[in-house]
Computed example of a mutant assay.
Amino acid sequence: MRKTVLSVFGAVLILLIISATAGYCKYRPKPSVLEVLVNNQSILAEPGTYSLNRWGRTAADDTYSDPVTLVLNDDPIIVAPAEEIKLEFEKPPENVKYYLWDVKTGKLAYKGLKGYPLKLENSNIESGDYAMEIRAKWEYGYVLYNTRIIVYKDTK
């Protein structure tokens, strides 16, 4: 009886080790989902370039394209400079920086904007159509997200 119990326990333990090893071999870190919120508007920002390393497993991807090209056909979020741009991550990052690329020219218009949430009026952003690149960094890697925003200044 005792040998049977030990044999069953050993077999179950071996099966658990095999299944855990198989799961670990298939594991690939994935970028955190990002939801960008402004007032009642919400949009999911797709991860572009990323490099992640968790539990000894690595995943990386490079979009090989500039932010303007990536968001040109996306629906924009319309934002006034006084409004906050909030970011909802699955796991909050340690550091977030923003870069705004002018959609008309394709050139970098504003770099290294900081804030979590971001208030554009703190950086004197002009009205315009922008590709916003969001660079989020965690202890296990980084992800670049891109979305399109239209900034308008109310000139009443």
Rank of each mutant, 00 (worst) to 15 (best):
R2A: 08
V5F: 13
S7D: 02
V8H: 01
I14L: 14
S19F: 12
S19D: 07
A20V: 11
T21Q: 05
A22Y: 09
C25E: 12
K30H: 08
S32A: 14
L34H: 10
V36M: 05
L37G: 07
N39K: 05
S42Y: 08
S42E: 13
G48L: 04
S51K: 02
L52E: 12
L52N: 05
R54S: 06
R57W: 11
T58V: 12
A59C: 09
A60N: 13
D61Y: 14
D62H: 12
S65W: 05
L70W: 05
V71Q: 06
D75T: 15
D75G: 07
I77N: 03
A82Q: 12
A82H: 07
K86C: 07
P92T: 14
P93G: 03
N95G: 03
K97W: 11
Y98H: 10
D102C: 09
V103D: 04
A109E: 10
K111I: 00
L113D: 03
K114M: 09
G115Y: 04
L120D: 01
L120A: 01
N122I: 06
S123A: 11
E126R: 02
E126W: 02
S127V: 08
D129T: 01
Y130V: 03
I134G: 02
A136D: 00
W138A: 04
W138E: 01
E139G: 13
Y140N: 09
Y142F: 15
Y142H: 11
V143T: 11
V143M: 06
L144M: 09
Y145R: 00
T147Q: 06
I149E: 10
I149G: 02
V151R: 00
Y152G: 06
Y152M: 04
